[in-house]
Amino acid sequence: MSALAIALILAGLFFLVVAAIGMLRLPDVFTRCHALSLTDSLGAFLVLAGLAVYQGFSLNLLKILVVLMLIYLLNPVIAHATIRAALRSGLRPWRRESP
């Protein structure tokens, strides 16, 4: 049981690290928001699922699942609101300079 938990958490940690690298490397707000959605959608899912597996079958597992569901419901809303505000305030997406 705990081997599976460790595997899940490590996989989630990998995606979190990739998202952090993306935050550093990508050029503008819009692209960075993609990296952040990677964190939220897969990294957090895998880490929290690993922790839930570690709990075994109990009430705590259900509670962690509630948090997971909440992250999935709320984070698209935040990303959408931020991107919309950025678009409306006149920010244009980054483009590679055409040679």
């Binding site: 819009f30 928001c33 993609h34 959605s37 897969l42 809303v77 959408h80 991107i83 678009l87 997406p93």
Partner: peptide
């Protein structure tokens, strides 16, 4: 639809006007 687009990494919904969606894709 908008939430699914945002949840899938690589695409984000920016704006929704009635039936038109503005989507930023990587």
């Amino acid at each position: 639809l908008g939430n699914s687009i945002t949840l899938t990494p690589g695409t984000i919904t920016g704006e929704v006007n009635e039936q038109e969606l503005v989507v930023h894709a990587l």
